[in-house]
């Protein structure tokens, strides 16, 4: 839906896009999780190109760059504990569908200074505006409470990040953002979106896909465990029994 919004926006505003053009790229379009994976750093870089006749114009307005990286959406069961007879037990559950499992936003200034809430909400820019598509409750206040719980949990796990000064300008027009992708980041298709704001209005936007995937042994073990679960279980047992047998063999001789 957001991709469509960006496409419509670009189609409707060719004049603005021509005046200040945005070019961006990624350091890699694929991140691979291997056995010694501890997370990696994705670099989103770009430049603002402008034609000579608009240069004076750009001096007057305030320019901002916002970079958003979204992971694949997930279905999340959010549970709330309650103290019952002195013990904390999960007693309410709400399912949120369509929330990204990973979210990173970097900007040149704090987001609330860049654009009004309505604009941020429309593009889902910022941790306050990452919304699920559906919630298994009709009570909006409760859905919001549980959504915030997801944001807190993801922030703790470094899966949701807001970096209000994360966009680094190397020159007047050249910028760069370091996006950390931890080992716990989910597999799937991600999108890196770059927005150019001027006085609170989106002037240009660009979206690039990237993929996070397990490769090598991890990938094979994961698909073995899911596609041929019974044989995987048997293989684990055989490994365990072999190691147990080997140990009694080795240590008896020693």
């Amino acid at each position: 839906m957001r991709a469509a919004l960006i496409a419509i926006f670009l189609a409707l505003m060719p004049a603005a896009a021509a005046a200040e053009n945005l070019v961006s790229g990624l350091s890699q379009d694929q991140i691979q999780i291997t056995s010694n994976y501890t997370g990696s750093d994705l670099v989103v870089f770009g430049a603002i190109e402008q034609s000579a006749d608009t240069e004076e114009d750009s001096e007057t307005g305030h320019r901002d760059v916002v970079v958003v990286v979204r992971g694949p959406t997930a279905k999340m069961d959010v549970r709330r504990k309650q103290r019952i007879a002195g013990i904390w037990i999960n007693n309410r559950e709400i399912t949120l569908t369509g929330m990204p499992a990973y979210y990173y936003v970097a900007s040149t200034r704090p987001l609330d200074k860049i654009a009004p809430a309505q604009t941020l909400g429309r593009y889902q820019i910022g941790l306050d505006y990452v919304k699920p598509e559906r919630a298994s409750t009709h009570n909006p206040a409760r859905a919001e409470q549980f959504r915030q719980a997801v944001v807190r949990e993801r922030v703790r796990g470094h899966l949701f990040t807001e970096a209000p000064a994360g966009v680094e300008f190397l020159s007047y027009s050249l910028f760069r953002v370091h996006v950390p992708v931890p080992a716990s980041a989910p597999r799937g298709q991600y999108t890196a979106e770059v927005y150019l704001f001027k006085d609170g209005v989106v002037m240009a936007a660009q979206s690039t896909p990237l993929f996070v995937d397990q490769i090598g042994l991890e990938r094979r073990l994961f698909s073995f465990a899911h596609n041929d679960a019974f044989a995987y279980g048997v293989a684990t047992v055989i490994m365990a029994m072999l190691l147990g047998w080997l140990s009694s063999l080795i240590f008896r001789r020693a």
């Binding site: 997930a74 279905k75 069961d77 959010v78 719980a149 807190r152 993801r154 703790r156």
Partner: peptide, 11 residues
Amino acid sequence: ADIFSVAVEGQ
């Protein structure tokens, strides 16, 4: 620390 917990389904 947080009375809410999140479980991601089908990952």
